[in-house]
């Protein structure tokens, strides 16, 4: 059976890279006693895939992990959440555990957008970035690959950006089906004025990262990025935790 897990990655876990996080989950599931499915062959590994790797230095309250299970054993998914978290380090915590149909596409291929919160040292930086975003007609980011240079207009690729959480949530709710479990209210101070919030288009072809905006903006600033959630669907985005 297949399952989709939502999890948070907090605090100093930001220094743990994607591959190490994968290894962390493998050991976590083994400690928890979850009956994972393994690939065949001489070096069997647990079958798991992440919706989108999270870079070093980023925290998140909206990560998704697809796993394959042999069975749930004697526990319910909610009981498994508690068991897994009891075996974790308090900074990587599973918050949702949903059994999904066998034919569900991997979350990685469904991903179409992700929301972020960027916190700065002061209120002014947040307002400056918002002002820069609002006033620019186009924001051209040049993505260099080994073979080519692609111009990306971030204005089109970042559908929502605001320094005010209320405004952000409101705008988001018009174009997205958002998760109603109030992760933000639980894990972050939404009254903090030193932040901006944004929704970036995402996916395997073109993945927009918040850093791209600061790259174009040009001023060197200290900031910390937290991913808030991930979405699927075109035009009308649906939080991966809904559905």
């Amino acid at each position: 059976m297949k399952a989709r897990l939502r999890f948070v990655k907090l605090g100093e876990m930001q220094y743990i890279g994607h591959l190490d996080l994968m290894r962390y989950f493998q050991k976590l599931f083994r400690r928890s006693g979850l009956d994972m499915s393994y690939s065949k062959g001489f070096n069997p590994h647990q079958i798991m895939s992440f919706a989108s790797p999270l870079g070093v230095g980023l925290t998140s309250i909206g990560e998704y992990l697809d796993i394959s299970l042999e069975s749930l054993g004697e526990y319910t998914v909610n009981e498994w959440i508690d068991i897994i978290n009891a075996h974790s380090n308090g900074l990587v915590l599973v918050t949702e555990f949903i059994i999904i149909p066998e034919d569900t596409k991997p979350s990685m291929s469904l991903l179409s957008a992700a929301s972020y919160r960027i916190s700065f040292d002061d209120k002014k930086s947040a307002e400056d970035v918002e002002e820069f975003f609002d006033r620019s007609e186009t924001i051209i980011y040049i993505k260099e690959t080994k073979k080519s240079k692609i111009e990306i207009d971030l204005k089109k690729e970042i559908p929502v950006l605001s320094a005010d959480y209320g405004v952000f949530e409101n705008t988001l709710s018009k174009i997205c089906i958002i998760n109603n479990r109030d992760y933000e209210k639980k894990y972050i101070d939404t009254e903090n004025k030193n932040c901006i919030y944004m929704l970036c288009k995402a996916g395997s072809v073109l993945n927009i990262k918040p850093e791209m905006l600061f790259d174009v903006y040009g001023k060197t600033m200290e900031y910390q990025i937290m991913r808030l959630d991930m979405f699927s669907g075109e035009n009308n985005y649906v939080s991966m935790s809904v559905g």
Binding site: Q26, K27, L28, F29, R30, R31, H87
Partner: peptide, 8 residues
């Protein structure tokens, strides 16, 4: 040890 670490 295997139970407490999750080592493979």
């Amino acid at each position: 040890m295997l139970a407490s670490t999750g080592y493979e």
